[in-house]
């Protein structure tokens, strides 16, 4: 009994310690317990009560193991990252929540229009509202869990790899911003990125042309869009990273400029790889486009909608780069 209780105690202490010190610590504590029992009982053989008193004096195995743990980072995210982590997490969850709610409502209405004969019947249907709320709850929960996991892993990585997010040198303290980046702009930016991704992944048919007031012809080739989901996810993540860095810095610093330029260039490459294919456009639209529109200008746009869409994205990204670079130089001079 004596051996088994002490052995169990030693095992409980050492099982959480690094393998290379387990044996040594176990032998060391065993010798200590032996010394404590000898002092307590002298030449008398210790009974179970003596052993329990000595082990209680040593403390619980978990507490003792914790004292032997010499690692300096005993938590997932510690100081000085935790305060920034809380700030970013709060905003990302708000943005993801808003984005998910908007996209759930949009996709519910898009699906509803396909299933019901008219908008009036759809809005009066209890099933429509129940489905919408259920879908919203599921989408919202999974989105919030994903957002939480993404931010937590990112900051855990920063913390454990000692990646500095703020300089500690006095000379490197950021100047008081002349053009403070609005928090609301960043929140909207992240929410738009999330909503963009969800809408394109769940209901790309929302982008459609209404023919004769009742027939909806999707602009995009829905199965192709959904098969190439990774382009959409990468594009949205780049947007989230760009806005998150702005949220942390809250001013047009060099770091914001570099992140914006790099993420915008990456977004442009991803958008080009995604949209440089005719397969992405619904073939039926291309065939019927001449029937739908009378003006040659509109026919040209809808016949090559992927290039038009790419042009819009590249234009927006270019404006974003120019605006950020100009504001950064203004802010730093």
């Amino acid at each position: 009994m004596k051996d088994s209780l002490i052995e169990r105690y030693l095992y409980a202490v050492t099982k959480r310690l690094p393998a290379k010190i387990q044996n040594d610590v176990s032998n060391e504590i065993e010798a200590l317990i032996d010394d404590m029992l000898s002092e307590r009982c002298g030449d008398v053989t210790p009974n179970e009560k003596d052993i329990k008193i000595v082990l209680t004096e040593l403390g619980s195995p978990r507490e003792l193991a914790e004292k032997y743990d010499t690692s300096d980072k005993k938590c997932l995210i510690g100081a000085p990252y935790y305060i920034t982590y809380k700030y970013v997490l709060k905003i990302v969850l708000i943005c993801v929540g808003i984005g998910m709610i908007i996209s759930s409502v949009i996709s519910a209405f898009v699906d509803g229009f396909e299933s019901f004969d008219s908008a009036g019947i759809m809005l009066q249907s209890v099933n429509f509202w129940i489905n919408m709320i259920t879908d919203m709850f599921i989408t919202l929960s999974s989105g919030l869990i994903f957002g939480f996991a993404f931010v937590t892993l990112l900051f855990a990585f920063f913390y454990h790899k000692d990646i500095k997010i703020d300089s500690e040198k006095l000379d490197d303290l950021p100047s008081v911003p002349k053009n403070k980046i609005s928090k609301a702009d960043c929140i909207v930016g992240i929410a738009v990125s999330v909503a963009f991704a969800v809408v394109f992944l769940v209901a790309p048919q929302i982008f459609c042309v209404i023919l004769h007031g009742e027939v909806f012809i999707p602009i995009f080739n829905v199965p192709q869009i959904q098969a190439q989901w990774y382009f959409i996810v990468i594009f949205a993540l780049l947007g989230i990273v760009r806005e998150t860095i702005k949220l942390i810095e809250r001013q047009y610093s060099k770091r914001v400029m570099i992140t914006t330029v790099v993420t915008d260039i990456c977004s442009a490459v991803v958008a080009a790889l995604w949209l440089f294919s005719d397969k992405i456009i619904n073939m039926n639209l291309a065939l019927e486009v001449t029937d739908i529109f009378d003006e040659n200008f509109l026919i040209a746009i809808f016949s090559n909608f992927n290039y038009f869409f790419l042009f819009c994205i590249l234009l927006a990204l270019t404006i974003d780069v120019i605006e950020t670079v100009v504001k950064t130089f203004k802010n730093n001079n």
């Binding site: 060391e28 200590l32 040593l58 004292k67």
Partner: peptide, 24 residues
Amino acid sequence: MYGYSLVKKLQDSGIPIEANTLYP
């Protein structure tokens, strides 16, 4: 010195320290 003898020596000198603190 081994750990437990040091615990005793420190305690005798008026510095109370537990073995579970001293060993780690």
